[in-house]
């Protein structure tokens, strides 16, 4: 077990190094930091001196090592656009995106898994066919259109829910949360639904496919023959065995949630990392773009580690193999 975790840790370190390298290359080769910091009237000597002071004339590998070292110390440099420390800018945006993403993922699981089980058990039923047809249309509708439709219906026509921003927030330590005010929850519903719908269809279709596969297997047929009650058959015997691939996909979906949160945040003016990333692309704010990548990769790695550990917790066979 310890060996397994160690192996994953080492892999993760390499992934992070690769991403840091990518971010560094962005920094180094796209745009010139010196011309960003100086004006037109700066002389060539001054530029050269600045270049020297900043260490831009050092060997590539030395620069990369320094870059990585600074990152580890939490020094992410300064934004070209706002001149603020990037670490601060990103840190204030992280809670908004994480809360949005988590709630969206929860929606997709809480609705998607039961719907997937149902459509697998009654594949020819009217309700199942309707659900499946709806999801096919749902996958084809772009996230931003879903957002616009929700805004139009609940924000404009019915006037029930706010259509932009986070609503009331509460400060807990350095974490700005909108989960503790009713106002914040109301602001969260529409963006989270928008982000969750697409993931929901993925979850549902996957659970359905896995469930149908399992229901065909011999042990389910045998369990049916033994007269095990259907409820127990479906949920204890069948669903439990679909969980490993489902968890894998949830891990992968996390990436989708982060990526589409860029779109959702733009539609709802949600002050998260995605909105910051968009602004930084528009203004070619390379440091922010690079750090965004690194932060996202870090979450990716964390989630994937968690998924691997969950495998062991869920699938007893993996545990036995480890012990043996």
């Amino acid at each position: 077990m310890a060996y397994f975790i160690l192996k994953r840790l080492i892999q993760s370190v390499f992934v992070m190094l690769a991403v840091a390298f990518l971010a560094f290359s962005l920094f180094r080769f796209v745009g010139d930091p010196v011309s960003q910091m100086t004006g037109v009237e700066t002389s060539e000597q001054d530029r050269e001196r600045l270049r020297d002071e900043l260490g831009l004339n050092d060997a590539f590998i030395v620069q990369f090592a320094r870059f990585t070292g600074d990152m580890l110390k939490g020094d992410f440099g300064y934004s070209y656009r706002t001149r603020q420390p990037v670490a601060e800018m990103i840190a204030t945006r992280i809670p908004a995106t994480l809360e949005l993403g988590t709630v969206a993922l929860l929606i997709s699981l809480i609705v998607g898994i039961p719907a997937g089980v149902y459509t697998a058990l009654r594949p020819r039923g009217f309700v199942s066919q309707t659900i499946l047809m709806t999801t096919l249309v749902g996958v084809s509708i772009p996230t931003f259109v879903i957002g616009i439709m929700l805004i139009f219906l609940f924000g404009v026509q019915l006037g029930w829910l706010p259509t932009f921003g986070r609503g009331g927030t509460v400060q807990i330590g350095g974490w700005t949360s909108s989960l503790f005010t009713s106002d914040g929850w109301r602001a969260l519903i529409l963006p989270a639904l928008t982000l969750g719908v697409y993931q929901l269809t993925l979850t549902m279709r996957l659970v359905r496919a896995e469930m149908m596969e399992v229901m065909r297997s011999d042990y389910i047929r045998f369990a049916t023959a033994r007269g095990i009650p259907f409820r127990s058959l479906y949920f204890r015997h069948a669903l439990a065995n679909t969980m490993v691939p489902v968890i894998t996909i949830i891990g992968l979906q996390f990436g989708g949630v982060i990526a589409f949160s860029i779109v959702t945040e733009s539609v709802f003016q949600w002050p998260g990392m995605g909105l910051l990333f968009l602004e930084s692309i528009r203004f070619v704010d390379i440091p922010v773009m690079g750090v965004y990548l690194v932060v996202i990769a870090f979450f990716f790695v964390l989630v994937n580690m968690a998924v691997d550990l969950l495998y062991v917790a869920i699938d007893p066979r993996l545990r036995v193999r480890e012990d043996a």
Binding site: L26, G255, G256, S280, I281, V284, M289, I296
Partner: peptide
């Protein structure tokens, strides 16, 4: 594999952003 882990929209945004700088 690496690209598959990154959603398409993120890749496209990045390429676009880099092109703006270059």
């Amino acid at each position: 594999d690496v690209q598959l882990a990154l959603p398409a929209i993120l890749t496209a945004l990045l390429i676009d952003g880099v092109s703006r700088g270059l």
